[in-house]
Design a binder for these strands. Structure first.
Length: 580
RNA sequence: GCGCCGGUGGUCUAGUGGUAGGACAUGAGCUUCCCAAGCUCAUAGCCCGGGUUCAAUUCCCGGCCGGCGCACCA
């Protein structure tokens, strides 16, 4: 652990091209990192592994939405309001406070968040609100607005404000009606997306942990909360390291090791869908290089939940003594779809057919427009609509001779016989359901960082300290290094040919003929290359090469003919090195 | 954003009011028949701006960036 752990990785990352701070020649810019060659490759491999599970294996759809969205999207999602904080700083002690919270705590005003900053400042002065930290009067202090979303303008001028998305999820929610079509309106279905998101953090910290631009891999699992069940049996026996809100509150609370089945049965995880994804994801973390002894699922405490979340579990990894959120598994309910339905006026529900149609009695109207039209003129259609609404809500009103409806403040009386009122027996074949959402949201950069930190090892070879990255072969940036033992006598040509043949199989290969052989092994150790192939003088005689394993430095001699297949099998875990 | 501390080749560092030295890494060459060996040579640096001074990498101020604490973290 220790800070040294993060420092070592930051140093290695910069020196060997995993990641580094962007625009260093201009002094650098806070919270922005560039992935170097090895880092970009590692990140790609991690994303591919994610896609393999959450898209391909689970059969979900993947989309790619824009990173800039119009204001209306975030007005509906709640981000415009929740991300726009009013900060007030104490002139005396320097503490920052949420100005709207000060007002709410000290006055009868609720939802002060929706008030303009000037009004908040006036209210603070009027009520003589003092700094909660030191007690100094805050009257007259400026209320600063701070929005965590990057704002921009769409097109010329400022008429169409746009925002860089603070999460990729809204790109899925906002086009749910379209996506539902592609899923043939069949719940449950999932939509995945890998992409960039942006948050103008007040103070970015700790390398890749808190940055202003980052990659998310998110899955939105849509389901009918009444009828749809996840395939829990597939993961029922997976053992989860759980740190529930209850355990966090308990004095002696610690991790609970429960299987997915047990956690659901005991109500530790309330949502079956959340439980399913916690179970499904566990092995994935291990497969991309997370040290599972430094991993836990932690439930959000009640006050910690996001504005949209009903329940949330974070996957956390331990880095330098701190626990870092690498995934949020949120139960978002129907919050997002309801909001977009509300703001847009469009339907964000799915029509679900019943197994058996249901017959119900329903009051209907069929107004006689040949009577209503001449009599009421332009408002006739509005009156017809009002009659229809009235019939649905208050069919008893049609019991008498006439019925009265109100349109735009005026009352109109219509003879019931002209309304065509009837109670019909209709057959309903289904109903409209607004799906609920469970969302696993992976922070790719934090996982890359975790993979590097957890993979870092030191050992001793022939009295020399060796530094290496024990990355899983499937995610390591380079799979195999190829070296000629000597850069002469035809060994180099032979090795070049071997490297070319390996590349042709689709493997990620690096060729190195510079310096002593040991130095070349070390270079590859440091960037986590799991296998190195060396061409020596025996190769020229017998067409065999040595293959060396990173973690043990052990070597085997193998025929060059099926080298490609051998390395592929080693990378994919179809064969163990000590079986060669 | 506030406070404290810091910023010297790609990396890690020494040092200084008269523009800098090392180690590692990198490149070229020699050597070398499997784990950072050795030799020669080469490339490469005082975060930015202002001030004080004959002279600033060094002192002062501001900025940028980083670490830590506070705040923030949908």
């Amino acid at each position: 652990m220790s800070e040294a752990e993060g420092d070592r990785i930051a140093e290695l990352a910069k020196r060997r091209g995993f990641f580094f701070q962007t625009a260093g020649v201009y002094g650098g810019v806070g919270g922005f990192y560039t992935y170097g060659p090895h880092g970009a490759s590692l990140k790609d491999n991690l994303e591919a592994a994610w896609r393999e599970l959450f898209v391909t294996r689970e059969g979900h759809m993947e989309i790619d939405a824009p990173t800039v969205m119009p204001e209306s999207v975030f007005a509906a999602s709640g981000h415009l309001e929740t991300f726009d904080d009013m900060i007030l700083e104490c002139p005396d002690c320097g503490a920052s406070h949420r100005a709207d919270h000060l007002v709410e705590d000290n006055t009868d005003i609720e939802e002060a968040e929706s008030l303009p900053p000037a009004e908040i400042a006036t209210t603070i002065a009027e009520h003589d609100i003092a700094c909660p930290t030191c007690g100094v009067a805050l009257a007259g202090e400026p209320v600063e607005e701070f929005n965590l979303m990057f704002e921009t303008n769409i097109g010329p001028g400022t008429a169409s404000p746009g925002y860089l998305r603070p999460e990729t999820a809204q790109g899925i929610f906002v086009d749910f009606p379209q996506l539902s079509q592609y899923a043939r309106n069949q719940l449950p279905f999932g939509v995945a997306q890998i992409g960039r998101a942006y948050r103008n953090e007040i103070s970015p910290r700790k390398g890749l942990v808190r940055v202003r631009e980052f990659s998310q891999a998110e899955l939105e699992q849509f389901f009918d909360p009444e009828t749809d069940e996840p395939p829990l049996t597939r993961v029922a026996d997976v053992s989860l390291p759980l740190y529930s809100a209850t355990q966090q509150a308990a004095e002696d609370g610690g991790l609970q090791e429960l299987t997915v089945g047990e956690a659901v049965d005991r109500g530790v995880i309330e949502s079956d869908w959340l439980a399913f994804y916690l179970g499904l994801s566990l092995d994935w973390y291990a497969s991309v290089g997370v040290d599972m002894d430094r991993f836990r699922y932690r439930q959000h405490r009640p006050g910690e939940l996001s504005h949209y979340a009903a329940d949330c579990w974070d996957a956390e990894t331990e880095i330098g003594g701190d626990w870092v959120e690498v995934t949020g598994f949120a139960y978002r309910g129907s919050y997002d779809l309801d909001k977009h339905a509300d703001y847009s006026g469009e339907s964000f529900s799915v029509f679900e057919q019943y197994d058996e149609p249901v017959t119900v009695e329903r009051p209907t109207v069929d107004p006689d427009m040949s009577e209503l039209g001449p009599r009421f003129g332009g408002v006739a259609t509005d009156i017809a609509d009002a009659l229809e609404t009235r019939a649905e809500r208050d069919p008893d009103a049609f019991d008498g001779e006439t019925v009265t409806v109100e349109v735009a403040g005026d009352r109109y009386t219509v003879p019931v016989e002209q309304t065509g009122f009837a109670v019909e027996t209709v057959t309903e074949s289904g109903e409209h359901v607004t799906p609920h959402v469970v969302e696993p949201s992976f922070g790719i950069g934090r996982l890359v960082y975790t993979a590097l930190v957890h993979a870092h090892r030191e050992d001793e070879v022939d009295g020399e300290t060796r530094q290496y990255l024990a990355l899983p072969p499937s995610v390591a940036p380079t799979t195999v290094g190829v070296f000629p033992l000597m850069d002469r006598d035809g060994l180099d040509e032979y090795a070049q040919r071997v490297a070319g043949e390996l590349r042709a199989t689709g493997l990620s290969v690096t060729y190195d003929d510079a310096g002593a052989i040991g130095r070349r092994y070390r270079r590859q150790d440091e960037v986590g290359t799991p296998f190195c192939v060396t061409v020596d003088y025996d190769s020229l005689e017998a067409d065999t090469v040595t293959i060396r394993e990173r973690d043990t430095t052990a070597q085997r001699r193998v025929p060059v003919d099926d080298l490609g297949e051998t390395v592929l099998a080693l990378r994919d875990g179809d064969c163990r090195f000590d079986e060669l």
